[in-house]
Design a protein around this nucleic acid. Structure first.
Length: 364
DNA sequence: AAACTTCTCAACCGCTTGCAT
DNA sequence: TATGCAAGCGGTTGAGAAGTT
């Protein structure tokens, strides 16, 4: 239980600030500095609690606060940082000069989050989620007329629609970017074998030695996923750079990145034997684009690797989302995130295709 | 024009963290 | 080490604005 809020002490005002109160607070802080928030209101002649004064100052009155609409670059930064840091609004705000954590939090909840959901991207994991995709929104005449290619691409996932676990697996693998995508993801003849190979590689990756330190593990997963996916972004990101410089973990990180890379590589040439209990040759034989085999495959991968398939949660990764958003605004902004390097990447490819269907007017 | 709905964002609340004693 | 306090954080609320019917 936390302590009772200080504002409940009698006589202290709550609610919206008046211009007079703002004036008093600004004048006091300009003269004396921020100092002790507990004693500040009394000294400044304000009938407010210190907490209220601090919030008013940090979120509204501070002279270095940037007002107005978030720029595309700011939005892109927020999405990237959120994929790494989660809802650590103050940490995100620390990297966006002039923006407060409250402002960023509000902007995320009212704009970015909704847009990601419309795109079919889980705003928590940043994973493409076909089950979240608002297809009706994509077909709004005013927004966009989908091309035959777009419809063909979406149709490639149609066989998965009756198998939620496979749908989640597809989403997870596409978002993790840990697999080399089929050259044409719209081709279900290639999609299914690719999913199977990716699943096996994921199973192999899960067999890697577990780290006791959970924080290190999540960092490791993040790095491994990113390393497979967009090395340039990882190295360019100061946050990740900082993490990489953690001396104690560095050696182990390298070791595990190598192992993760090996897992990624294994998908280029499917393993010939048994991986984590999976009968690979038998499964490969099953990969035919008809419903009965899909059902069989679905139950096989689900039962053999519940951790991966059932959860539907993927390693957080910034690039698919940011790349998707970026691509949707490509007509007005320069590309970022190394589109060329991502062109062979499943996540980027997927998000680019989906983003083609977005309403670009959101950014105008 | 009025009623209703949706959106925005400033402010609050409860909790955690860090520091001083 | 235990305790209390101040500062900070993230989730939530609610009033007013904007949009829709």
């Amino acid at each position: 239980m936390g302590r009772a809020p200080c504002c409940e002490k009698s006589g202290l005002k709550k609610g919206p600030w008046t211009p007079e109160e703002d004036e008093k607070l600004v004048a006091y802080i300009k003269k004396h500095g921020q100092g002790n928030w507990r004693t500040l209101p009394k000294n400044a002649g304000l009938a407010r609690c210190g907490k209220s004064c601090r919030l008013r100052w940090t979120n509204y009155l501070r002279p270095d606060i940037k007002r107005g609409r978030f720029s595309f670059e700011e939005e892109e930064t927020i999405i990237q940082l959120h994929s790494i840091l989660g809802n650590k609004w103050s940490a995100i705000a620390a990297r966006l000069p002039g923006r407060t954590d409250n402002e960023i939090k509000n902007y995320w909840n009212t704009h970015i989050r909704k847009r990601l959901l419309r795109m079919g991207i889980d705003p928590v994991t940043h994973a493409p989620r076909l089950d979240l995709l608002d297809l009706s929104a994509l077909l709004k005449p005013a927004a966009y007329y989908p091309t035959q290619a777009d419809l063909d691409a979406l149709r490639a996932f149609e066989p998965l629609a009756s198998y939620p676990d496979l749908l989640r697996l597809a989403s997870t693998l596409l978002s993790s970017g840990s697999a080399a995508a089929p050259a044409a993801i719209g081709d279900q003849q290639q999609l299914l074998p690719w999913l199977l190979q990716a699943q096996m590689a994921q199973a192999a990756a899960m067999a890697l030695p577990q780290q006791a330190d959970h924080q290190f593990m999540s960092q490791q997963q993040q790095q491994a996923g990113a390393a497979c996916q967009m090395p340039d972004l990882v190295h360019a990101n100061p946050m990740v750079q900082q993490q990489q410089l953690a001396a104690a973990a560095q050696q182990q990180q390298q070791q595990h990145q190598d192992m993760a890379a090996a897992a990624c590589n294994s998908m280029q040439a499917p393993p010939s034997g048994y991986v984590d209990g999976l009968d690979v040759p038998a499964l490969m034989q099953m990969v035919q684009p008809d419903a009965s085999n899909l059902q069989q495959w679905s139950s096989t991968v689900t039962s053999s690797n519940n951790n991966n398939v059932g959860s539907g949660v993927s390693t957080p990764s910034s690039s698919p989302v940011a790349a998707g958003l970026n691509h949707s605004a490509a007509s007005t902004a320069t590309t970022y995130g190394g589109g060329a390097s991502a062109s062979s990447d499943a996540a980027a490819l997927f998000s680019m295709q989906l983003s083609e269907l977005l309403d670009v007017s959101d950014y105008m």
